[in-house]
């Protein structure tokens, strides 16, 4: 199962490091990654592989301190929703 992690917030040092640390600590593999700066806002999207659905909730919790510390908004969504919306 694949999911999309999106990170949005003010650009600053260490965002990628801290976010990916959480993923590696939870043994989650990143299969694709992209980042841009949009009007001073850092946006990063990662495609991750997840073996167990329970990990979604786990990751959400693990991201909370990072979100607070860096003032980020991190969300995780299963990939199928994007397929449903954007592909016929």
């Amino acid at each position: 199962m694949r999911a999309v992690v999106s990170v949005i917030g003010k650009d600053q040092v260490g965002i990628i490091a801290k976010v990916t640390t959480v993923l590696s600590e939870n043994h989650v593999n990143i299969s694709d990654i992209s980042q841009t700066i949009l009007q001073d806002f850092f946006t990063m999207m990662m495609l991750i592989d997840i073996d167990d659905i329970k990990k979604l909730a786990q990751l959400k919790q693990a991201f909370e301190p990072v979100e607070k510390e860096l003032g980020l908004k991190i969300s995780i969504q299963r990939e199928e929703i994007f397929q449903a919306m954007h592909r016929v």
Binding site: S6, I8, S34, T43, S75, Q77, F82, M85, H86
Partner: peptide, 17 residues
């Protein structure tokens, strides 16, 4: 076809904003 990042951004924008 893989999902483009602009499409992912669009969905996230629709939900969050």
């Amino acid at each position: 076809m893989p999902i483009a990042y602009t499409e992912i951004q669009e969905t996230i924008r629709m939900v969050q904003m």
